[in-house]
Design a protein around this nucleic acid. Structure first.
Length: 449
RNA sequence: GGAGCCAUAGCCAAGUGGUAAGGCGUGGGACUGCAACUCCCUGAUCACCGGUUCAAAUCCGGUUGGCUCCUCCA
Protein backbone atom coordinates (compact mmCIF):
# COMPACT_ATOMS: atom_id res chain seq x y z
CA UNK A 1 0.00 0.00 0.00
CA UNK A 2 1.45 3.30 -1.08
CA UNK A 3 1.54 5.99 1.56
CA UNK A 4 2.17 9.65 0.82
CA UNK A 5 3.20 12.36 3.20
CA UNK A 6 0.58 15.05 2.85
CA UNK A 7 1.84 18.55 3.67
CA UNK A 8 -1.72 19.61 4.28
CA UNK A 9 -2.16 17.29 7.25
CA UNK A 10 1.53 16.77 8.05
CA UNK A 11 0.93 13.06 8.09
CA UNK A 12 1.65 9.97 6.08
CA UNK A 13 -1.60 8.94 4.46
CA UNK A 14 -2.57 5.94 2.37
CA UNK A 15 -2.79 6.96 -1.25
CA UNK A 16 -6.34 6.60 -2.51
CA UNK A 17 -6.90 8.14 -5.94
CA UNK A 18 -9.97 10.25 -6.50
CA UNK A 19 -10.79 8.21 -9.58
CA UNK A 20 -9.86 4.51 -9.42
CA UNK A 21 -6.88 3.63 -11.57
CA UNK A 22 -6.07 7.24 -12.39
CA UNK A 23 -3.70 9.78 -10.93
CA UNK A 24 -3.85 13.47 -11.70
CA UNK A 25 -0.84 15.52 -10.73
CA UNK A 26 0.40 19.04 -11.19
CA UNK A 27 3.88 20.28 -10.42
CA UNK A 28 4.79 23.95 -10.31
CA UNK A 29 7.16 24.71 -13.15
CA UNK A 30 9.76 27.43 -13.59
CA UNK A 31 9.58 31.12 -14.28
CA UNK A 32 11.55 31.28 -17.48
CA UNK A 33 13.89 34.24 -17.15
CA UNK A 34 17.18 32.43 -16.61
CA UNK A 35 18.75 28.98 -16.74
CA UNK A 36 17.39 26.78 -13.99
CA UNK A 37 19.58 26.09 -10.99
CA UNK A 38 20.30 22.79 -9.30
CA UNK A 39 17.61 23.50 -6.70
CA UNK A 40 15.04 23.57 -9.46
CA UNK A 41 16.30 20.17 -10.52
CA UNK A 42 14.98 18.51 -7.40
CA UNK A 43 11.27 18.67 -8.16
CA UNK A 44 12.05 17.98 -11.82
CA UNK A 45 13.74 14.73 -10.86
CA UNK A 46 11.68 13.73 -7.86
CA UNK A 47 8.22 14.24 -9.29
CA UNK A 48 9.30 12.49 -12.46
CA UNK A 49 10.06 9.47 -10.28
CA UNK A 50 6.69 9.85 -8.57
CA UNK A 51 5.00 9.81 -11.93
CA UNK A 52 7.05 6.82 -13.06
CA UNK A 53 6.21 4.90 -9.93
CA UNK A 54 2.49 5.47 -10.38
CA UNK A 55 2.90 4.16 -13.91
CA UNK A 56 4.83 1.19 -12.53
CA UNK A 57 1.91 0.50 -10.21
CA UNK A 58 -0.40 0.48 -13.20
CA UNK A 59 -2.04 3.87 -12.81
CA UNK A 60 -2.98 6.01 -15.75
CA UNK A 61 -1.15 9.26 -14.92
CA UNK A 62 -2.13 12.69 -16.14
CA UNK A 63 0.86 14.96 -15.43
CA UNK A 64 0.86 18.71 -15.92
CA UNK A 65 3.64 21.19 -15.23
CA UNK A 66 3.32 24.84 -16.15
CA UNK A 67 5.65 27.39 -17.65
CA UNK A 68 5.42 30.81 -16.03
CA UNK A 69 6.16 33.20 -18.86
CA UNK A 70 4.62 36.35 -17.39
CA UNK A 71 6.37 37.86 -14.39
CA UNK A 72 8.12 40.97 -13.09
CA UNK A 73 11.46 39.20 -13.17
CA UNK A 74 10.99 38.40 -16.83
CA UNK A 75 10.24 42.02 -17.62
CA UNK A 76 13.27 43.15 -15.65
CA UNK A 77 15.55 40.64 -17.34
CA UNK A 78 14.25 41.54 -20.78
CA UNK A 79 14.89 45.21 -20.11
CA UNK A 80 18.34 44.53 -18.71
CA UNK A 81 19.34 42.43 -21.68
CA UNK A 82 17.52 44.66 -24.14
CA UNK A 83 15.64 41.78 -25.69
CA UNK A 84 11.99 41.17 -26.34
CA UNK A 85 10.17 39.39 -23.50
CA UNK A 86 8.81 36.75 -25.81
CA UNK A 87 12.26 36.07 -27.15
CA UNK A 88 13.64 35.79 -23.62
CA UNK A 89 10.96 33.42 -22.41
CA UNK A 90 11.15 31.23 -25.47
CA UNK A 91 14.92 30.98 -25.09
CA UNK A 92 14.71 29.90 -21.49
CA UNK A 93 11.69 27.70 -22.00
CA UNK A 94 13.68 25.78 -24.54
CA UNK A 95 16.71 25.69 -22.23
CA UNK A 96 14.51 24.42 -19.40
CA UNK A 97 13.11 21.63 -21.52
CA UNK A 98 16.61 20.60 -22.55
CA UNK A 99 17.74 20.56 -18.94
CA UNK A 100 14.76 18.47 -17.87
CA UNK A 101 15.69 15.84 -20.39
CA UNK A 102 19.40 16.05 -19.62
CA UNK A 103 18.47 15.20 -16.03
CA UNK A 104 16.78 12.06 -17.27
CA UNK A 105 13.23 13.28 -16.69
CA UNK A 106 10.42 13.19 -19.16
CA UNK A 107 8.76 16.43 -20.11
CA UNK A 108 5.24 16.80 -18.83
CA UNK A 109 2.82 15.86 -21.61
CA UNK A 110 1.06 19.13 -20.88
CA UNK A 111 3.02 22.32 -20.17
CA UNK A 112 0.57 25.22 -20.19
CA UNK A 113 1.87 28.78 -20.44
CA UNK A 114 0.42 31.79 -18.73
CA UNK A 115 0.43 33.73 -21.98
CA UNK A 116 -1.81 31.10 -23.50
CA UNK A 117 -4.22 30.92 -20.58
CA UNK A 118 -5.19 34.58 -20.30
CA UNK A 119 -8.92 34.40 -21.17
CA UNK A 120 -9.43 31.70 -18.55
CA UNK A 121 -7.49 33.70 -15.96
CA UNK A 122 -9.57 36.82 -16.55
CA UNK A 123 -12.80 34.87 -16.39
CA UNK A 124 -11.66 33.28 -13.13
CA UNK A 125 -10.87 36.63 -11.50
CA UNK A 126 -14.25 37.95 -12.59
CA UNK A 127 -15.88 35.05 -10.85
CA UNK A 128 -13.94 35.67 -7.64
CA UNK A 129 -15.18 39.26 -7.68
CA UNK A 130 -18.77 38.14 -8.22
CA UNK A 131 -18.47 35.75 -5.29
CA UNK A 132 -17.12 38.51 -3.07
CA UNK A 133 -13.66 37.05 -2.63
CA UNK A 134 -11.92 39.69 -4.68
CA UNK A 135 -12.12 43.45 -5.05
CA UNK A 136 -10.86 46.01 -7.49
CA UNK A 137 -8.82 49.06 -6.50
CA UNK A 138 -7.57 51.48 -9.15
CA UNK A 139 -7.22 48.84 -11.82
CA UNK A 140 -5.67 46.25 -9.51
CA UNK A 141 -7.62 43.29 -8.22
CA UNK A 142 -6.87 41.69 -4.85
CA UNK A 143 -7.98 38.52 -3.13
CA UNK A 144 -9.81 39.06 0.15
CA UNK A 145 -7.93 36.73 2.46
CA UNK A 146 -9.99 37.47 5.57
CA UNK A 147 -13.18 36.23 3.97
CA UNK A 148 -11.85 32.72 3.98
CA UNK A 149 -12.06 30.85 7.29
CA UNK A 150 -9.54 28.19 6.37
CA UNK A 151 -6.81 30.59 5.26
CA UNK A 152 -3.48 29.42 6.67
CA UNK A 153 -4.38 25.74 6.85
CA UNK A 154 -1.55 24.53 4.63
CA UNK A 155 1.19 26.58 6.22
CA UNK A 156 -0.31 26.15 9.68
CA UNK A 157 -0.36 29.88 10.28
CA UNK A 158 -2.84 32.27 11.74
CA UNK A 159 -3.54 35.45 9.84
CA UNK A 160 -2.55 37.55 12.84
CA UNK A 161 0.78 35.77 13.22
CA UNK A 162 1.47 36.15 9.56
CA UNK A 163 0.86 39.86 9.82
CA UNK A 164 3.34 40.26 12.67
CA UNK A 165 6.23 38.88 10.66
CA UNK A 166 5.07 40.27 7.36
CA UNK A 167 7.75 41.85 5.25
CA UNK A 168 5.38 42.86 2.53
CA UNK A 169 5.57 46.44 1.31
CA UNK A 170 2.60 48.42 2.53
CA UNK A 171 0.03 48.96 -0.09
CA UNK A 172 -2.75 51.27 0.85
CA UNK A 173 -5.02 49.86 -1.81
CA UNK A 174 -5.24 46.57 0.02
CA UNK A 175 -7.90 46.01 2.65
CA UNK A 176 -5.48 43.71 4.43
CA UNK A 177 -1.74 43.45 3.97
CA UNK A 178 -2.02 39.71 3.33
CA UNK A 179 -4.44 40.18 0.45
CA UNK A 180 -2.61 39.12 -2.68
CA UNK A 181 -2.70 40.43 -6.20
CA UNK A 182 -4.91 38.73 -8.75
CA UNK A 183 -4.55 41.38 -11.41
CA UNK A 184 -2.08 44.21 -11.64
CA UNK A 185 -2.48 47.33 -13.76
CA UNK A 186 0.80 47.95 -15.46
CA UNK A 187 2.56 50.30 -17.80
CA UNK A 188 5.62 48.13 -18.41
CA UNK A 189 6.03 44.84 -20.18
CA UNK A 190 3.58 42.51 -21.81
CA UNK A 191 -0.05 43.31 -20.94
CA UNK A 192 -3.59 42.31 -21.68
CA UNK A 193 -6.95 44.02 -21.83
CA UNK A 194 -9.18 43.18 -18.89
CA UNK A 195 -12.37 44.58 -17.32
CA UNK A 196 -10.19 46.39 -14.74
CA UNK A 197 -7.15 47.67 -16.58
CA UNK A 198 -4.47 47.02 -19.09
CA UNK A 199 -2.24 44.72 -17.09
CA UNK A 200 -1.17 41.24 -16.16
CA UNK A 201 -2.22 38.54 -13.69
CA UNK A 202 -0.68 37.86 -10.31
CA UNK A 203 1.45 34.79 -9.84
CA UNK A 204 -0.79 32.73 -7.59
CA UNK A 205 -3.71 32.60 -9.97
CA UNK A 206 -2.17 30.85 -12.94
CA UNK A 207 -1.77 27.42 -11.35
CA UNK A 208 -5.34 27.35 -10.07
CA UNK A 209 -6.70 28.28 -13.46
CA UNK A 210 -4.46 25.86 -15.32
CA UNK A 211 -5.44 23.00 -13.05
CA UNK A 212 -9.11 23.76 -13.52
CA UNK A 213 -8.61 24.25 -17.23
CA UNK A 214 -6.96 20.88 -17.66
CA UNK A 215 -8.59 18.67 -15.07
CA UNK A 216 -11.92 20.44 -14.40
CA UNK A 217 -11.91 19.21 -10.81
CA UNK A 218 -9.84 18.62 -7.68
CA UNK A 219 -6.67 16.68 -8.46
CA UNK A 220 -4.82 13.97 -6.58
CA UNK A 221 -1.38 15.52 -6.17
CA UNK A 222 0.04 19.00 -6.27
CA UNK A 223 3.79 19.19 -5.96
CA UNK A 224 6.54 21.75 -5.66
CA UNK A 225 9.35 23.01 -3.46
CA UNK A 226 8.96 23.68 0.25
CA UNK A 227 9.27 27.39 -0.37
CA UNK A 228 6.08 27.38 -2.38
CA UNK A 229 4.03 26.23 0.57
CA UNK A 230 3.59 29.81 1.68
CA UNK A 231 2.37 31.98 0.20
CA UNK A 232 2.02 30.39 -3.23
CA UNK A 233 0.20 27.19 -2.45
CA UNK A 234 -1.69 28.68 0.44
CA UNK A 235 -3.02 31.27 -1.94
CA UNK A 236 -3.87 28.70 -4.55
CA UNK A 237 -5.90 26.79 -2.00
CA UNK A 238 -7.65 29.98 -0.95
CA UNK A 239 -8.69 30.76 -4.51
CA UNK A 240 -9.84 27.23 -5.15
CA UNK A 241 -11.97 27.20 -2.01
CA UNK A 242 -13.44 30.53 -2.96
CA UNK A 243 -14.23 29.65 -6.53
CA UNK A 244 -14.61 25.88 -6.72
CA UNK A 245 -15.41 24.94 -3.13
CA UNK A 246 -12.63 22.38 -3.05
CA UNK A 247 -9.03 22.49 -1.88
CA UNK A 248 -7.50 22.07 -5.34
CA UNK A 249 -5.56 18.91 -4.49
CA UNK A 250 -6.05 15.98 -2.16
CA UNK A 251 -2.35 15.47 -1.46
CA UNK A 252 0.19 18.28 -1.30
CA UNK A 253 3.78 17.22 -1.66
CA UNK A 254 6.78 19.46 -1.03
CA UNK A 255 10.40 18.62 -1.65
CA UNK A 256 13.18 19.93 0.59
CA UNK A 257 15.87 22.33 -0.52
CA UNK A 258 19.12 21.81 -2.23
CA UNK A 259 21.66 23.62 -0.13
CA UNK A 260 25.07 24.93 -0.85
CA UNK A 261 27.41 25.22 2.10
CA UNK A 262 24.45 24.27 4.26
CA UNK A 263 22.47 27.27 3.14
CA UNK A 264 19.52 27.46 0.88
CA UNK A 265 20.43 27.83 -2.74
CA UNK A 266 18.26 30.40 -4.42
CA UNK A 267 18.13 32.83 -7.22
CA UNK A 268 17.69 35.71 -4.84
CA UNK A 269 20.68 34.80 -2.68
CA UNK A 270 22.74 34.54 -5.83
CA UNK A 271 24.55 31.45 -4.54
CA UNK A 272 23.08 29.15 -7.12
CA UNK A 273 24.69 26.77 -9.56
CA UNK A 274 22.90 26.22 -12.82
CA UNK A 275 22.10 22.75 -14.00
CA UNK A 276 24.04 23.55 -17.16
CA UNK A 277 27.20 24.34 -15.25
CA UNK A 278 27.02 21.15 -13.29
CA UNK A 279 26.30 19.12 -16.40
CA UNK A 280 29.71 20.10 -17.74
CA UNK A 281 31.24 18.15 -14.85
CA UNK A 282 28.75 15.41 -14.10
CA UNK A 283 26.24 13.69 -16.33
CA UNK A 284 22.52 13.72 -15.71
CA UNK A 285 22.55 10.22 -14.32
CA UNK A 286 25.09 11.20 -11.69
CA UNK A 287 23.06 14.21 -10.62
CA UNK A 288 19.95 12.09 -10.49
CA UNK A 289 21.65 9.36 -8.50
CA UNK A 290 22.91 11.91 -6.02
CA UNK A 291 19.49 13.46 -5.54
CA UNK A 292 17.59 10.23 -5.27
CA UNK A 293 20.01 8.99 -2.62
CA UNK A 294 18.41 11.32 -0.11
CA UNK A 295 14.76 11.25 0.87
CA UNK A 296 12.97 14.05 -0.95
CA UNK A 297 11.79 15.89 2.16
CA UNK A 298 15.28 16.08 3.63
CA UNK A 299 17.59 18.92 2.73
CA UNK A 300 20.43 17.86 0.47
CA UNK A 301 23.76 19.58 0.37
CA UNK A 302 25.70 20.08 -2.82
CA UNK A 303 29.25 18.82 -2.57
CA UNK A 304 31.85 17.38 -4.90
CA UNK A 305 32.30 14.39 -2.59
CA UNK A 306 28.64 13.49 -2.77
CA UNK A 307 28.57 13.82 -6.54
CA UNK A 308 31.71 11.70 -6.94
CA UNK A 309 30.20 9.06 -4.73
CA UNK A 310 27.00 9.09 -6.75
CA UNK A 311 28.97 8.82 -9.96
CA UNK A 312 30.71 5.71 -8.75
CA UNK A 313 27.45 4.27 -7.50
CA UNK A 314 25.62 4.62 -10.80
CA UNK A 315 28.61 3.45 -12.80
CA UNK A 316 28.76 0.22 -10.85
CA UNK A 317 25.10 -0.47 -11.42
CA UNK A 318 25.45 0.35 -15.06
CA UNK A 319 28.46 -1.93 -15.49
CA UNK A 320 26.71 -4.77 -13.73
CA UNK A 321 23.73 -4.48 -16.03
CA UNK A 322 25.86 -4.16 -19.13
CA UNK A 323 27.95 -7.17 -18.18
CA UNK A 324 24.86 -9.28 -17.60
CA UNK A 325 23.23 -8.12 -20.79
CA UNK A 326 26.44 -8.86 -22.70
CA UNK A 327 26.52 -12.38 -21.32
CA UNK A 328 22.96 -13.01 -22.42
CA UNK A 329 23.65 -11.48 -25.80
CA UNK A 330 26.79 -13.53 -26.45
CA UNK A 331 24.89 -16.65 -25.46
CA UNK A 332 22.07 -15.66 -27.84
CA UNK A 333 19.80 -15.74 -24.82
CA UNK A 334 18.28 -12.25 -24.90
CA UNK A 335 14.81 -13.73 -25.26
CA UNK A 336 15.24 -16.66 -22.90
CA UNK A 337 12.41 -17.18 -20.41
CA UNK A 338 13.24 -15.62 -17.04
CA UNK A 339 13.53 -17.60 -13.86
CA UNK A 340 12.64 -15.44 -10.92
CA UNK A 341 13.80 -17.24 -7.83
CA UNK A 342 13.12 -16.27 -4.23
CA UNK A 343 16.13 -14.01 -3.93
CA UNK A 344 15.13 -12.07 -7.00
CA UNK A 345 11.49 -11.84 -5.96
CA UNK A 346 12.60 -10.40 -2.63
CA UNK A 347 14.42 -7.58 -4.37
CA UNK A 348 11.21 -6.62 -6.07
CA UNK A 349 9.32 -6.73 -2.79
CA UNK A 350 11.98 -4.61 -1.11
CA UNK A 351 11.97 -2.08 -3.91
CA UNK A 352 8.22 -1.68 -3.77
CA UNK A 353 8.25 -1.49 0.01
CA UNK A 354 10.73 1.38 -0.20
CA UNK A 355 8.80 3.27 -2.84
CA UNK A 356 5.51 2.64 -1.08
CA UNK A 357 6.91 4.37 1.98
CA UNK A 358 6.38 7.91 0.76
CA UNK A 359 8.66 7.38 -2.23
CA UNK A 360 11.72 6.48 -0.21
CA UNK A 361 14.10 6.59 -3.15
CA UNK A 362 17.14 6.37 -0.88
CA UNK A 363 16.12 2.87 0.12
CA UNK A 364 15.02 2.04 -3.41
CA UNK A 365 18.50 2.95 -4.59
CA UNK A 366 19.96 0.60 -2.03
CA UNK A 367 17.81 -2.20 -3.42
CA UNK A 368 19.00 -1.34 -6.90
CA UNK A 369 22.57 -1.58 -5.71
CA UNK A 370 21.91 -4.97 -4.13
CA UNK A 371 20.41 -6.07 -7.42
CA UNK A 372 23.58 -4.99 -9.20
CA UNK A 373 25.66 -6.97 -6.77
CA UNK A 374 23.59 -10.09 -7.31
CA UNK A 375 23.78 -9.54 -11.03
CA UNK A 376 27.57 -9.42 -10.87
CA UNK A 377 27.63 -12.65 -8.93
CA UNK A 378 25.34 -14.39 -11.41
CA UNK A 379 27.22 -13.08 -14.41
CA UNK A 380 30.43 -14.63 -13.13
CA UNK A 381 28.88 -18.01 -12.52
CA UNK A 382 28.49 -20.59 -15.27
CA UNK A 383 25.06 -20.68 -16.86
CA UNK A 384 22.39 -18.92 -14.75
CA UNK A 385 21.01 -17.37 -17.95
CA UNK A 386 17.38 -17.59 -16.90
CA UNK A 387 18.17 -15.98 -13.55
CA UNK A 388 20.19 -13.28 -15.25
CA UNK A 389 17.30 -12.67 -17.58
CA UNK A 390 14.95 -12.27 -14.62
CA UNK A 391 17.37 -9.87 -12.96
CA UNK A 392 17.88 -7.82 -16.09
CA UNK A 393 14.17 -7.43 -16.50
CA UNK A 394 13.81 -6.46 -12.86
CA UNK A 395 16.63 -3.91 -12.92
CA UNK A 396 15.14 -2.50 -16.08
CA UNK A 397 11.80 -2.08 -14.34
CA UNK A 398 13.48 -0.36 -11.40
CA UNK A 399 15.24 1.90 -13.84
CA UNK A 400 12.01 2.82 -15.54
CA UNK A 401 10.99 4.25 -12.19
CA UNK A 402 14.26 5.83 -11.10
CA UNK A 403 15.23 7.00 -14.57
CA UNK A 404 18.96 6.41 -14.38
CA UNK A 405 18.88 5.27 -18.00
CA UNK A 406 21.23 2.41 -17.24
CA UNK A 407 19.55 -0.18 -19.33
CA UNK A 408 19.28 1.22 -22.80
CA UNK A 409 21.49 -1.24 -24.66
CA UNK A 410 21.58 -2.58 -28.19
CA UNK A 411 22.40 -6.21 -29.03
CA UNK A 412 25.83 -6.82 -30.56
CA UNK A 413 26.08 -7.47 -34.28
CA UNK A 414 26.95 -11.00 -35.43
CA UNK A 415 30.35 -9.74 -36.63
CA UNK A 416 31.18 -8.37 -33.20
CA UNK A 417 30.07 -11.57 -31.54
CA UNK A 418 32.54 -13.46 -33.74
CA UNK A 419 35.30 -11.14 -32.52
CA UNK A 420 34.41 -11.94 -28.94
CA UNK A 421 34.64 -15.65 -29.73
CA UNK A 422 37.99 -15.21 -31.45
CA UNK A 423 39.39 -13.26 -28.56
CA UNK A 424 38.27 -15.92 -26.11
CA UNK A 425 39.86 -18.60 -28.26
CA UNK A 426 43.10 -16.63 -28.41
CA UNK A 427 43.11 -16.29 -24.66
CA UNK A 428 42.59 -20.01 -24.27
CA UNK A 429 45.54 -20.57 -26.55
CA UNK A 430 47.53 -18.04 -24.55
CA UNK A 431 47.98 -15.94 -27.65
CA UNK A 432 47.70 -12.72 -25.64
CA UNK A 433 49.03 -10.53 -28.41
CA UNK A 434 46.09 -11.51 -30.59
CA UNK A 435 43.62 -11.27 -27.70
CA UNK A 436 44.78 -7.76 -26.89
CA UNK A 437 44.62 -6.76 -30.53
CA UNK A 438 40.99 -7.83 -30.71
CA UNK A 439 40.23 -6.03 -27.47
CA UNK A 440 41.80 -2.93 -28.96
CA UNK A 441 39.73 -3.35 -32.09
CA UNK A 442 36.49 -3.70 -30.12
CA UNK A 443 37.27 -0.71 -27.95
CA UNK A 444 37.83 1.37 -31.03
CA UNK A 445 34.27 0.54 -31.99
CA UNK A 446 33.21 1.83 -28.61
CA UNK A 447 32.57 -1.62 -27.15
CA UNK A 448 34.04 -2.13 -23.70
CA UNK A 449 35.53 -5.53 -23.07
C1' G B 1 6.73 37.60 17.57
C1' G B 2 4.64 33.15 15.02
C1' A B 3 5.20 28.30 12.16
C1' G B 4 8.43 24.27 11.07
C1' C B 5 12.83 21.29 10.07
C1' C B 6 17.60 19.15 11.22
C1' A B 7 21.85 17.00 14.42
C1' U B 8 23.48 8.96 13.05
C1' A B 9 30.95 6.41 11.60
C1' G B 10 36.33 10.48 7.75
C1' C B 11 32.25 11.84 3.99
C1' C B 12 27.07 10.80 2.07
C1' A B 13 22.77 8.45 4.10
C1' A B 14 18.47 4.82 5.75
C1' G B 15 16.18 3.55 10.19
C1' U B 16 11.17 6.79 14.14
C1' G B 17 10.05 1.73 20.66
C1' G B 18 13.21 -4.12 20.81
C1' U B 19 20.21 -3.74 21.49
C1' A B 20 22.43 0.71 14.39
C1' A B 21 20.68 -0.75 6.22
C1' G B 22 23.49 0.82 2.28
C1' G B 23 27.15 3.74 -0.55
C1' C B 24 31.95 6.46 -0.96
C1' G B 25 36.67 6.45 1.26
C1' U B 26 40.36 3.53 4.32
C1' G B 27 42.78 -1.13 5.48
C1' G B 28 43.10 -6.48 4.43
C1' G B 29 42.05 -10.73 1.28
C1' A B 30 40.31 -13.41 -3.39
C1' C B 31 40.02 -13.68 -8.71
C1' U B 32 43.18 -12.31 -13.06
C1' G B 33 48.35 -13.28 -18.71
C1' C B 34 48.19 -7.60 -18.26
C1' A B 35 44.64 -3.61 -17.40
C1' A B 36 39.83 -2.75 -16.04
C1' C B 37 35.71 -4.89 -13.81
C1' U B 38 34.12 -8.00 -9.79
C1' C B 39 33.59 -10.60 -5.03
C1' C B 40 34.56 -11.20 0.41
C1' C B 41 36.10 -9.06 5.12
C1' U B 42 36.95 -4.30 7.81
C1' G B 43 34.25 0.95 11.21
C1' A B 44 29.61 4.30 14.89
C1' U B 45 25.68 3.04 20.86
C1' C B 46 23.07 7.56 17.14
C1' A B 47 24.82 16.42 19.62
C1' C B 48 24.21 16.97 25.19
C1' C B 49 21.19 16.49 29.92
C1' G B 50 16.93 14.53 32.32
C1' G B 51 12.34 11.62 32.10
C1' U B 52 8.71 7.60 30.49
C1' U B 53 9.39 2.19 29.53
C1' C B 54 11.05 -4.50 30.85
C1' A B 55 13.27 -2.05 26.42
C1' A B 56 14.74 4.55 23.07
C1' A B 57 18.87 6.78 17.93
C1' U B 58 13.52 6.20 17.86
C1' C B 59 8.42 8.87 22.78
C1' C B 60 8.27 13.39 26.41
C1' G B 61 10.86 17.80 28.60
C1' G B 62 15.12 20.83 28.49
C1' U B 63 20.14 22.54 26.57
C1' U B 64 23.49 23.55 22.60
C1' G B 65 24.40 24.13 17.45
C1' G B 66 22.53 24.67 12.33
C1' C B 67 18.63 25.62 8.66
C1' U B 68 13.89 27.27 6.49
C1' C B 69 9.17 29.92 6.07
C1' C B 70 6.00 34.43 7.51
C1' U B 71 8.95 39.46 0.62
C1' C B 72 10.49 36.80 -4.94
C1' C B 73 12.13 31.63 -4.83
C1' A B 74 12.00 24.51 -6.40
Amino acid sequence: MLTVYNSLTNMNEPFVPIQPGKVSMYVCGPTVYNYIHIGNARPIIFFDVVRNYFTYLGYDVDYVSNITDVDDKIIAAALAQAVDETELTSTFTKAYQEDVQALGSNLAPSMPKVTETMPQIIRFIEELIVKGFAYEQEGDVYFRVTKLVEYGALSNQKIDDLLVGARIESNTNKENQLDFTLWKATTEGIKWESPWSLGRPGWHTECVVMIDDHFHREIDIHGGGMDLKFPHHENEIAQAHACFSHGLAKYWMHNGFVQIDDQKMSKSLGNFKTVRDILTQYDGTTIRTWMLSTHYRQPINFSADALESAKKFSERISLAYQGAYRKLDLADALTIAPNMDEKIAKLQTDFEAAMNDDFNTANAMTVLFEAAKLLNQLTRQAGKLAEIQAMCQLVSRFDQVLGLKLTHLQPLSPEVKVLFQEREAARQAKDFAKADAIREQLQQQGIEV
